[in-house]
Nucleic acid binder design. Structure first.
Lengths: 258, 258
DNA sequence: GAAATAGTGTCTGTTAGACACTATTTC
DNA sequence: GAAATAGTGTCTAACAGACACTATTTC
């Protein structure tokens, strides 16, 4: 939706993209036991959107998702997981999103039948990161870009509130089957850290004794001989993932159900 | 890809569809302990394709998938499950699929840069049905349409062999979490029927005692007071799904893992 | 009674889940 | 020794998985 400098016209810009199909990334951020989503407010419209963009004719949908995620977070190689595609004629109908309004804001004269106002299919991905790593940057024509708690979303454009809900369901389902913890945590981490990550994502408290027992029993994590000094109390030991046991276990159907 | 009678030109036909995005349905058929896929051979090309088609500007992706599945199977209301979307610039490159060749076969002059030769994103669904119910019908311009065992596929166009594999993985994962048996079996069925359905889909044998025990213990199925007379031996009792227990159980995370 | 298929009970080892105290560090 | 957080052991009930015989119907 953003027309960067260097392009003379809307069509010169738009010809490089696939039509009627786009990518949306639900970027979850995790910090101090809170789960947030990075949202943008485009064109000074009142409503907010999930991070998204069009797909270049020369790139795969996964590459498009990575590029778009990098543009907003400054992080390369984020773990992106596709969780579904959304498409119906009603999904882009939104009172703030009209050719007149967008034309006025962008300065381009857009024909009312321009394909950017057509119904398009959105291929949706989610990703998860420690949010202090993110340098949130807004696009050229976006009024704002910021983190919102998943439980207190602002008014969302199109069907984006629904997409966020689906992303969260997918994340909670996948955490038992895919190496989400592995992708998210630093190489060395403490038991309290991984424990509260799982509690935050699942939105419920997990018995610490049973949680630890399961991780150690399945050999998914290994205790190191180091501790981390944080605060005036007992220092927690550091752990790391045992990649082989982890991937092997997850492949053969061992599910981390809590 | 099919241009039905009643349309004067390719563009008149093609203008009703979304561009650069399409739907593919992996239609699994189950019969006598065999799992098969319904494939088409379009345009007398040598290779075979999964059932697919374009999305009308007036319909949702789910509606498109249903319409396309109905066109090939004659069955309305098939349970279709989206399992992923596929899109990269390489995916439609195939030596048999050229503007010249397609133009010759269809009788329409297609410009070499026609969008049907562009890279497009495929939203993929699978479905499963008792295959004796299906009246397999081929499209106007398809040479053939037939069932193939999932383990002995013919040469496939584009990335369709990959899509079928992904569909099978998704089916095997989903069978533990979604009401696939419920959608597939007739209202009343026997234990041997549901047993061999699960064995066929999972591709392994399941202990009949443990299998029955689990279904009855979770109250997912209920024994009826009727039997089905089939052959010169003991008649099996009929069972039906207990929809409430089934959906409630599956929602709350009870997985039918075998 | 032979052929064909349906149907079920028991044992064992493992795991999930409930539950509460001790250990370490710093001030 | 108080404050703050880390770390761990035990019991029980439920479940998964291995295993083999009896029941019914028809000819």
């Amino acid at each position: 939706m953003i027309i960067p400098p260097g392009f003379a016209s809307f069509s010169e810009y738009s010809d490089q993209f696939l039509r009627n199909v786009a990518v949306d990334n639900v970027i979850f951020g995790y910090h101090e036991k809170e789960l947030k989503v990075l949202l943008q407010q485009p064109y000074t419209l009142e409503k907010w959107t999930v991070t998204g963009g069009y797909i270049k004719k020369t790139e795969s949908i996964e590459d498009a998702a990575s590029r778009i995620a990098f543009d907003r977070t400054g992080i390369k190689g984020l773990y992106l997981k596709q969780f579904g595609s959304f498409g119906n004629p009603q999904r882009v109908i939104d009172d703030g999103f009209t050719p007149q309004r967008i034309g006025k804001i962008t300065g381009f004269e857009l024909p009312a039948d321009s394909w950017i106002f057509d119904y398009f299919v959105s291929v949706a991905f989610y990703t998860l990161t420690e949010f202090s790593k993110v340098e949130s940057t807004k696009g050229e024509l976006e009024a704002d870009s910021r983190w919102w708690p998943v439980n207190e979303l602002p008014p969302m454009m199109f069907d984006h509130a629904h997409i966020i809900n689906e992303a969260l369901s997918a994340l909670r389902l996948h955490i038992a089957h895919f190496p989400i913890g592995y992708e998210l945590l630093p190489e060395k981490f403490t038991l309290p850290e991984i424990h509260s990550l799982y509690e935050t994502i699942l939105g419920k408290s997990l018995d610490d004794r049973n949680f630890t027992k399961k991780l150690l029993l399945t050999k998914i994590i290994t205790k190191l001989d180091e501790t981390r000094k944080i605060g005036r109390h007992r220092s927690p030991f550091l752990y790391k993932f045992d990649k082989e046991h982890y991937q092997e276990g997850l492949k053969s159907g061992v599910a981390l159900v809590f």
